[in-house]
Design a binder for these strands. Structure first.
Lengths: 128, 128
DNA sequence: TGCCTGTATCGACGTATGTCAATGCCTTCT
DNA sequence: AGAAGGCATTGACATACGTCGATACAGGCA
């Protein structure tokens, strides 16, 4: 079971960060985000900021087995190219990874993304 | 200490939802979001999907006392009208509320927004 | 080999978005 | 009352974004 890069031509980064478990940023309420941190985190929020993309992400995240074939989640009311476009955006944002197995391509939530995003909303450190 | 509507002309909704503590949607990984749920949640993610807005939100959320004057958080590298524009977007998304006290306007994170957003990233219900 | 199905890319289109300078409103101070 | 400072609104602009139809590519099957 190997990760297969979807051929996207030179310069198109699929499954990009793929890296460690760093939460990208401290919780939003801990201290004011710096410019670079905000850039990184905003890119992820932006990816979830479209209703169609959010439904696709939710469909993958909630799918039994932790992964979903594109054909399993394409009922979101837009054309097939649009679905593909949105899945690409979610990949480029580091939120999803994909793997081709035979005819089908399976998407899953990138490791620790849920946890990392969740901690961003941790409450302020006990206002004393 | 009363909530004062910033005069924004007719039809401009400041501090809109202001309502209860409903988390807007179930966790993303619990089940696929429906169209309407995705619309609501995506609006909030979209509001946080801009680096400047995210810094403003973080600045307010992390400010001692839970609130911040506009003049306290305006150092984000854009003009004053742009800051005001972004704060309005955050208000309209239901993420911030504002209150005028004398010369200054204070912003704070809308009640239970951090908790509600956080639960969206709760893990899938024990994949068995 | 050739056809069919599933998915990605390309190119084009209308609309939404982020930004600023100019301006207006509200509050306080003189 | 008049002046000054804080913040919101307006209008304009360039750019980014979501969407689609057409098309290309990859893998399985006859």
């Amino acid at each position: 079971m190997t990760i297969v890069q979807i051929p996207t031509g030179p310069g198109a980064d699929a499954n990009p960060p793929a890296g460690d478990v760093v939460p990208c940023c401290p919780p939003l309420a801990q201290r004011p985000l710096e410019a670079e941190e905000a850039e990184r985190a905003a890119a992820m929020f932006k990816a979830l900021g479209d209703p169609v993309r959010l439904r696709l992400f939710s469909a993958v995240a909630s799918h039994p087995g932790g992964e979903a074939c594109v054909c399993d989640i394409s009922d979101v009311g837009v054309s097939q190219p649009t679905v593909s476009h949105h899945l690409r955006k979610l990949r480029e944002a580091g939120l999803l990874t994909c793997e081709r197995r035979g005819t089908w391509v399976y998407y899953r939530v990138a490791p620790s993304v849920l946890a990392a995003m969740g901690t961003l909303f941790d409450p302020a450190p006990t206002a004393r």
